[in-house]
C-alpha cells in the first residue's frame, strides 16, 4: 500500500481521481474546500522539504506564505503586473528573504532556526498590521485581481480547481525529481548525519540554505494563489498559529514523503474545513488535537504517518533494537552530545 502510494502509478491514479471530481458536480462548497486544501498542499510540501528531507525544524512558513500573498497582491494592485509575473515574484521574494534569514543561523546552530522563524513570523504580522501606507494594516488588501493568464481567466470554483491542480501537480512532480536526485539525497544525508555528509563532499550550509529557499519558494507561490483566489489578503491570515499548522501537516502526513505532504494538508485543512459548520469546535481545537497527535506520533512512529521508513510499528523496532543491544550486536544509542563528541575525538 505504501509502496503503491509512493509509486508513479499511484500518483497517476490519484491525479486522475482528482481530475474527475469536478465532473461529478460536488457543488461549489466542496470544490472550495479542495481548492484551499490544494493551496495548503504547496505549503505543506515546502515545509516537508525543510523538515522532512533536510531535518530542520522551521516554524514560520505562514510568514513566507504571507510574504508571497502580499508581494503578489501588491504587485498586481499597484503596478498591474500580470498574474504569472506576480506568482513567480511571490515565490522568489519569499525564497530570497528565507535564504537571507536562515543564513546566519545555518552557519552556526541549526537548532535556532526554529526560533528565528518564530520570531520572523511574529515580526511579519506586526509589520503587515502596522505599515498602513503599504499594507493598509488590519483592513487588508481587498480586490486583488483574478487569476488570469494567456487569455484565460478563472471565474468559477471549477476554473480555480483546475488551475490549482495543474500548478500543484507540476510542483509535486518537480519536487519529486529533486528529492529523487542528488539534491534530495544530499538533504537526507544532512538530516541523518551531518558529519558523514560533509565527509562525502556535501557542502552542508549550502544545501541547508537551498532547502530553506526551495521550501519558502513553494510557500510564497502558495501565498500568491491564496491572494488571487480569495481576492483578499489581511495580516490575520498569516499568524504564527498557521505556521504551527503547516508544521503539523508536514509531520502528521509523513516526513520526507510526497503523498505524506498531500495527506497532511488533507488532515489539517480539508477535514476541519469540511466540518466547519457541523463541528465548529474542530477548527478551534485543531492545534491541540494536532499537537496530541504529534506527541503520540513522535513516540510511536517518529517519521510521520506515510513515510516509507518505518513500515514496522515503532514498538517492534524498539524491541528488536533493545534485544540486539542486549546480546551485544548493536552499539549503544548515542546522545546528541555524544554524537558531537565522537566527531571531536
Amino acid at each position: 500500500m505504501l509502496d503503491f502510494l509512493h509509486s508513479r502509478r499511484g500518483a497517476a491514479v490519484f491525479l486522475v481521481i482528482l481530475a474527475v471530481i469536478p465532473l461529478l458536480d460536488p457543488g461549489r462548497y466542496w470544490l472550495h474546500v479542495i481548492n484551499v486544501t490544494m493551496i495548503y498542499a504547496l505549503v505543506s510540501l515546502g515545509q516537508n522539504i525543510i523538515t522532512g528531507w533536510c531535518g530542520m525544524l522551521t516554524l514560520g512558513q505562514a510568514a513566507f506564505f504571507g510574504l508571497g500573498a502580499y508581494t503578489s497582491a501588491l504587485l498586481s494592485l499597484t503596478f498591474g503586473l500580470p498574474f504569472i509575473v506576480c506568482f513567480f515574484a511571490a515565490g522568489i521574494m519569499a525564497s530570497i528573504v528565507g535564504a537571507l534569514l536562515s543564513l546566519p543561523c545555518l552557519r552556526v546552530r541549526t537548532d535556532f532556526l526554529s526560533l528565528i522563524t518564530i520570531a520572523f513570523n511574529q515580526l511579519f504580522f506586526v509589520v503587515a498590521n502596522n505599515w498602513m501606507s503599504l499594507t493598509r494594516g488590519p483592513m487588508g488588501l481587498p480586490q486583488v485581481p483574478r487569476i488570469e493568464f494567456f487569455g484565460f481567466a478563472a471565474w468559477s470554483a471549477t476554473d480555480h480547481y483546475y488551475v490549482f491542480l495543474v500548478i500543484v501537480a507540476l510542483a509535486y512532480f518537480a519536487v519529486s525529481r529533486i528529492t529523487g536526485g542528488a539534491t534530495g539525497r544530499a538533504w537526507e544525508m544532512i538530516r541523518d548525519d551531518e558529519v558523514a555528509a560533509r565527509a562525502v563532499g556535501v557542502d552542508v550550509v549550502r544545501y541547508k540554505v537551498l532547502a530553506f529557499a526551495v521550501g519558502c519558494f513553494l510557500a510564497g507561490c502558495a501565498g500568491s494563489l491564496f491572494a488571487h483566489y480569495l481576492r483578499l489578503v489581511s495580516p490575520d491570515m498569516f499568524l504564527l498559529e498557521e505556521s504551527l499548522i503547516a508544521m503539523q501537516m508536514a509531520i502528521l502526513g509523513g516526513l520526507a514523503s510526497l503523498p505524506g505532504a498531500a495527506l497532511g494538508a488533507f488532515l489539517m485543512i480539508a477535514i476541519p474545513e469540511a466540518l466547519r459548520s457541523s463541528e465548529p469546535w474542530l477548527i478551534t481545537l485543531r492545534p491541540g488535537i494536532g499537537g496530541a497527535l504529534l506527541v503520540i506520533l513522535m513516540i510511536w512512529r517518529p517519521h510521520g504517518l506515510l513515510s516509507r521508513r518505518n513500515t514496522a510499528p515503532q514498538s517492534l523496532r524498539a524491541l528488536s533494537a533493545w534485544l540486539r543491544r542486549g546480546i551485544g550486536l548493536d552499539r549503544a544509542p548515542r546522545s546528541p552530545a555524544e554524537r558531537d563528541r565522537d566527531n571531536l575525538r
Binding site: L57, D192, A292, V295, M298, S335
Partner: peptide
Amino acid sequence: EANRVVPMISALGAGLVLAA
C-alpha cells in the same frame, strides 16, 4: 534517543496540547 529534531517536535506538540 531519536534524531534530535524529534524531541523538539514532541515538545511543540505538548505545548499545543497545553495551549488547547
